[in-house]
Nucleic acid binder design. Structure first.
Lengths: 388, 388
DNA sequence: CTGAAAGCGCTAACAA
DNA sequence: TTGTTAGCGCTTTCAG
């Protein structure tokens, strides 16, 4: 750069023809607004200052309340603010280094059954800290997910929370590791909520819940009730959630000395429609099981429908359990025995961990928290030992 | 200013002692980054320009793709961007007058039963237009609502959507009118979604659905089935939603020549717990009705529980209808006859109307759209005419 | 096709 | 106590 340029660039080259202090641009605007009567368009801190006959710094001070201002001045400023219906510009504020931070909450679909509770947790904790909460849906599309993460980096989000299980794959892991780095280097933080960690070297916060343990408990409950042939209705084998739940189920089987029969494990998705369809097919093909372990409560609802439709009863003819403990579980008849997942706490913890870490200037390490789950016994399981 | 101070100000006066993070000078930050190898902290467009050996203007141009840039230059810039892991700062962009706009979605509680669908509609339409979607919960607290609206003004949200019925009152109307004005003058737009208009002179967009018509249809359905004594379980009489639904109910009664009995109208809230409690009390006090019109499906779920618990059956002993047609309605046994409300479309329309109007530079008039509703007949109503 | 520089609205260091 | 002013990072004329 040539030596003539003032390092600051702007002012040095400014000609003497200085009109008033500060920009002519806003001066002109001010003029226009005055003509129109003072209520049109956004007013700026400069307008307020002018109106109150003080400097912008003073206005900023009464706004921030972080510096002594003479009561009389203060009143004048406040009055001007009211008269002009002034509101500070969050962007300018952010640019100047202060202002409300944002936390992004990224889900596949906001209608997902457990979304509401997780969202509530996030919203709660986020609001408690005076932050804003951005919600984005990806529709499960990796491209949209990529776009969203980029957008969040641009927004300087304090944390980006990705919620829900996912199809695991090397591609996925690579992408996430990149997201994590990318966010980290932008001063933000990636939070994986309800899905497993990526490894020690990935700077992400992970808040998951115990799928394996919950499933173990649930299957144990079934096994203790005498069930030996349990139909497992899961999502794809590579789905992180399915993987965890199936693992717990298999461990329970093993612990009870029951051999795992591959024919009793179905892979599909976590929709109600799938639960219905597959259960119906299995029943049509001959009922070679006494209980159904549905991957989620939604799947269980579908299964229940199919069972009922086939003229069978739950739990008399077939026992049924779900997973998640969404409200639906206790609305079904019979009320569904399931595993409770603390979604709300999951959301809260995600925000808490991520922001606390940043505030304490945490290092780039991984953070990992696993929330407990527990079986909720209701009315959809029958004891086939005593019972018959 | 005195000539001794470095025009860049900060750097010059900066003491040697290592400062904390969040350094005051980006000059220093930039310096540090260079030392550490280019990946720490946020890089700015200036870093990219330097790295690529071009001016910031050029970088801005390749980013915006709105101006011719020599391919070679372009490549160098792109490379620099990648090397530096650069992401534009949305705030700076917004301040400069461009950038992603935001739409705010304000609800009482994100766990509300119909929230998910409305949110989906909003999210969908919002994303389609390349906007971001902010979600805030007020917990029904007017103070928090006020704070949220202010926050949204600061964020320069393109539209602020308030969803769900509300306790109507002069205070409420005055507050809303003020919000509307306030947002309007800030170049934003207030959208009332699922609640009635405030008047021609209030610059707000209103998207509601036909509570009155839906209730009329529903009660007519009940009346046609021979029911004469229908217990109406509503929210407070001043609640906009309750008011609409009750009005439709009463009109149906009148049209069928049935006198409205005040003793058959209960006021409470829209919770499941209320539905349960009140129904139980009424049953205990003597069943002087043959059908229950629950204000919402949630209330109906509670009522169903109470009825069942009392050893009565739906619809054999008592018919039951709800309102909203949330998923729960078809999960209950028996499946609930209810009124379908197009929540998703409601959300979509809210965004569409508000943003379209702004784009077309609409005037300050009120906008008003009413979406239709319709009865969904399922299995919770019995015909007492033929039946007995 | 590229660069210089004037802002966008606000904060905070420094001076008065 | 209050005012002045240098940025924050980006876009966009206006001149080359």
């Amino acid at each position: 750069m040539n030596g003539q340029t003032d390092p600051d660039g702007r002012r040095a080259t400014e000609p003497a023809q200085e009109p008033g202090p500060a920009a002519r641009g806003s001066g002109r605007r001010r003029g226009r607004r005055a003509e129109e009567g003072g209520r049109t368009g956004r007013s700026t801190i400069r307008d307020v200052a002018a109106q109150a006959g003080v400097s912008v710094a003073t206005v900023s001070r009464v706004l921030a309340e972080n510096y002594p201002v003479a009561p009389a001045t203060r009143q004048r400023v406040l009055r001007a603010i009211r008269d002009l219906d002034y509101v500070a510009n969050a962007h300018a504020r952010a640019l100047a280094g202060v202002g409300t931070e944002t936390v992004a909450f990224v889900v596949e679909d906001v209608r997902g059954p457990s979304f509401a509770h997780a969202a509530h947790g996030v919203e709660q904790e986020t609001a408690r800290r005076g932050r804003l909460c951005l919600v984005c849906a990806t529709g499960g599309d990796p491209r949209r997910e990529l776009a969203v993460v980029k957008l969040m980096r641009e927004q300087r989000a304090g944390a980006v929370i990705l919620v829900g299980g996912i199809e695991d794959s090397p591609t996925y892991r690579a992408r996430m590791a990149e997201f994590a780095q990318s966010l980290e280097s932008a001063g933000s933080r990636l939070v994986l909520c309800g899905r497993p960690p990526l490894g020690e070297d990935v700077p992400a916060t992970v808040v998951e819940y115990d799928n394996e343990g919950g499933a173990y408990g649930l299957s144990s409950h079934l096994l203790s009730a005498g069930h030996r042939r349990i139909l497992f209705l899961g999502g794809l084998a590579t789905h992180t959630t399915t993987a965890g739940r199936l693992a717990g189920h298999n461990r329970a089987l093993a612990d009870h000395g029951v051999e795992a029969d591959p024919a009793l494990v179905e892979n599909g998705d976590f929709t109600r429609a799938y639960g219905y369809r597959r259960t119906r097919e299995r029943i049509a093909a001959g009922v070679d099981f006494t209980a159904v372990f549905a991957g989620t409560d939604m799947v269980a609802a579908g299964a229940l429908e199919a069972i009922t439709e086939a003229g069978l009863r739950v739990p008399d003819d077939i026992s049924l359990v779900g997973f998640d403990d969404i409200p639906l579980a206790s609305d079904l008849t019979p009320k569904l025995t399931t595993v409770h997942v603390p979604y709300e706490e999951l959301g809260r913890a995600a925000v808490r961990l991520a922001l606390d870490r940043r505030e304490r200037g945490g290092d780039r390490t991984e953070q990992h928290l696993v929330l407990g789950t527990h079986v909720v016994v209701r009315q959809s399981v029958r004891n086939v030992r005593r019972g018959g």
